[in-house]
């Protein structure tokens, strides 16, 4: 399996820790990926808000690079990039639309494009929970966590094909297998406020605030995420959300790869844990080497 990798722009900036931990975990799990050369931004929300063709042209260039390099599949850690890639691949099935996109590109986009997937989904498919548990050296026992997937991981369902769109459970299954206590989190697919933190702060502060508040009410130790933008809104902007809700949360918001990495025995510095704005230092002492079960 030739797995191409598209880190997405935030991987080189605001979510460097996601990138570090993703690479570390993939490495530990023996999943080899190669970053496609010369990739460009998928256009994110602004591109498709302005023009479907522009958005798809930006994505098509990346898909084309992956296709021409012979990728069997293109992985990306970012749900927003994935969503744009999938929407583009779907739209390109329409010959008229493809023509419009090709008109924007230097060379026409390859006819056959590799399927795209999220790193989360790929890990879920390539490594079952049992294997994950076997590879783990640290037990997550004692951690009370909620998984937060955000909007785009599962929506629109006919494009994302990710679990039950109202109640995805993949992160729960993984981390439960590693010993964590996963709390039922009804807002796991609610919107965090997306990129509106900059132009319209209340939209983000209030929505992220609602998510943080429920997690706090449920007694979670941390919110586990899989989207760079969600993570930034809940972590870097947590103080803004606290202001909006009139309440202190102090909830760490690690990426699922960071938690996975900890269980796999990867050192915190190799997972970029120090980059979390709300530190999870208080939780680390709870982690202990796995004691093998008596019947194992």
């Amino acid at each position: 399996m030739h797995l191409a990798y598209f880190p997405g722009c935030s991987a080189k900036g605001s979510s460097l820790d996601y990138e570090l931990s993703t690479q570390a975990v993939l490495n530990a799990l023996g999943i080899t990926v190669w970053e496609i050369d010369d990739w460009n931004c998928c256009g994110s929300t602004p591109a498709h808000a302005v023009s479907t063709e522009l958005s798809s042209a930006l994505c098509a260039r990346n898909l084309d690079l992956a296709a021409k390099a012979g990728a069997d599949q293109l992985l990306t850690p970012c749900p927003s990039c994935l969503s744009n890639f999938r929407a583009t691949a779907k739209r390109l099935e329409d010959p008229d639309f493809r023509e419009k996109v090709n008109a924007l590109l230097d060379t026409p986009c390859a006819e056959t494009l590799p399927p795209t997937s999220s790193v989360l989904q790929a890990i879920g498919e390539l490594v079952d929970c049992e294997t994950l548990a076997k590879k783990a050296t640290i037990s997550l026992k004692g951690l009370k966590l909620v998984a937060y997937y955000g909007c785009l991981m599962s929506r629109p369902p006919e494009l994302m094909h990710f679990e039950d769109p109202e109640n995805p459970m993949l992160i729960e299954r993984m981390l439960e297998a590693l010993g964590a206590e996963m709390l039922d989190f009804p807002l796991k697919t609610a919107c965090c406020g997306a990129a509106f933190g900059i132009p319209k702060r209340p939209l983000t502060a209030q929505n992220s605030g609602r998510i943080l508040e429920l997690a706090a009410n449920l007694g979670a130790d941390a919110i586990v995420t899989c989207c760079p933008l969600c993570q930034m809104n809940l972590d870097l902007r947590q103080a803004q959300a606290e202001k909006a809700m009139g309440r202190h949360f102090g909830l760490p918001v690690p990426y699922f790869t960071q938690i996975l990495g900890l269980a796999l025995g990867i050192a915190p510095q190799d997972l970029g844990l120090a980059k979390l704005v709300v530190p999870m230092d208080a939780l680390l002492p709870k982690l202990a080497p796995k004691t093998s079960a008596p019947n194992a």
């Binding site: 990739w39 900059i198 132009p199």
Partner: peptide
């Protein structure tokens, strides 16, 4: 909001990435 989008797109236009 539009200004934010355009600022974002402008960076991509210039640098290829955000």
């Amino acid at each position: 909001v539009e200004k934010f989008w355009l600022s974002f797109l402008n960076m991509i236009r210039t640098f290829g990435r955000s």
